[in-house]
Design a protein around this nucleic acid. Structure first.
Lengths: 212, 212
DNA sequence: GGAAAACTTGCCCAGTCGGCATCTTTTCCG
DNA sequence: CGGAAAAGATGCCGACTGGGCAAGTTTTCC
């Protein structure tokens, strides 16, 4: 619901989604359990009941499988920005759009399914920011997200990504804030929600990084 | 001179530096010539007159070999920051430290050696921002640079990276500005010096990204 | 109902990656 | 000066990756 799947997906498409999710999740789970280097693609494929070759059809590396879930999520930020009211100032609009994808509906946080999902998400983020292999993949993918966001920003303020550096700069700064926030979140008191930290980071960016 | 090599390096160390540079340069050159995927480690090793195994002792991948030169350079930014006068405000200090490593001494820009070096540098940057493999490696390495910078910032303003998110945020925003500036530089009019673009980007960051 | 499109899988090979043992070069100290 | 000892370079090897190709299967769509 929250992700707004408009079209009624056919069986084929649904299976693909499932396989993709299963592979991604299996990669995270096994890596956390046994350590990144101790897990082979073969292990993961077996865990998800597909062949090694099929894993490769979905992801070109273990790292990509880990990052995919997060990136799929973040790709919606640009759409969220486009959906913000047109008269909202840019800083607020961007901040809201980003926060929306980091702090899901507060109501659903207690359901068992939601709990499990959250746990996966956290583990995935930890892997992304910890394991060098995955780090690289993460940033590479984040670049794509930032390009999307930059385009949406350019649309909103009526300029062009190629000519004006501003949209890309805002997108990159936003991405930087998000990464730092995630990192800080993982390293510090885990009871503070990620949304609070991220919100603070974004506010500081838009305030011109005043020395505290 | 500019890099301040204090200790008189022994023969061994000097050879290592040379081999490292030769491998890095060979990787860039061959990749530009033939295309990233068409170059094997074997080709590169042959080009630099070392064995494949020796390449691996220096770099764990082609991508790392490309990124190394840029990163070695950027690692000095933290030191540069520490060398700035203590009463200089943080924004100016950081900006100067970063710019110093992007815009070398204006006097040397015409010597033939300097020209050649610059050409390598540009090609390396283009690879870094273009080839996905290298992109990942670049950002991974840039993270290390940013950690260094964050530590230096924390020292300067008398706080702690673990407790206070501010230094990391500044470092990440600075890094983001640098990346965007490089990207924009490569894509647009190449007669505008990178220093100008980067300086503009950093100013905007410290001004709170005002909508133009 | 059945052809066409899309997916899965096995096979294969060039290339990567890193451990280990060996040989060579450089350093260092008496 | 000379001879360890330390540091590099290299070859060999085995496990794994990454992607092309050619069957098989399953789903979709007329």
């Amino acid at each position: 619901m929250a992700t707004g799947d408009g079209a009624p997906l056919g069986l084929r498409e649904r299976k693909k989604q499932e396989t993709r999710a299963a592979l991604s999740w299996a990669t995270i789970r096994l890596s956390v359990e046994r350590g990144w280097d101790a897990v082979t693609v073969e292990d993961i494929a077996a865990e998800a009941n597909v062949s090694v070759r099929t894993f490769r059809n979905y992801f070109s590396s273990k790292a990509e499988a880990v990052v995919a879930r997060h990136i799929d999520r973040m790709l919606h930020v640009a759409d969220d920005l486009r959906a913000r009211p047109a008269d909202e100032p840019l800083p607020e609009a961007v901040t809201h759009a980003v926060l929306a994808r980091f702090a899901p509906e507060p109501g659903a946080d207690r359901s068992p399914r939601s709990r499990e999902f959250l746990s996966q998400w956290v583990k995935g983020i930890r892997l992304m920011l910890t394991e060098p292999d995955v780090q690289g993949e993460f940033f590479k993918a984040d670049l794509v997200v930032q390009r999307e966001l930059a385009t949406a920003i350019a649309e909103r303020i009526g300029t062009d990504v190629a000519r004006d550096i501003y949209p890309s700069l805002v997108a990159a700064a936003t991405g930087a804030a998000a990464t730092v926030a995630m990192d800080h979140w993982l390293r510090s008191d885990p009871t503070v929600p990620i949304g609070v930290i991220l919100s603070d980071a974004l506010d500081r960016i838009w305030a011109g990084l005043p020395v505290p």
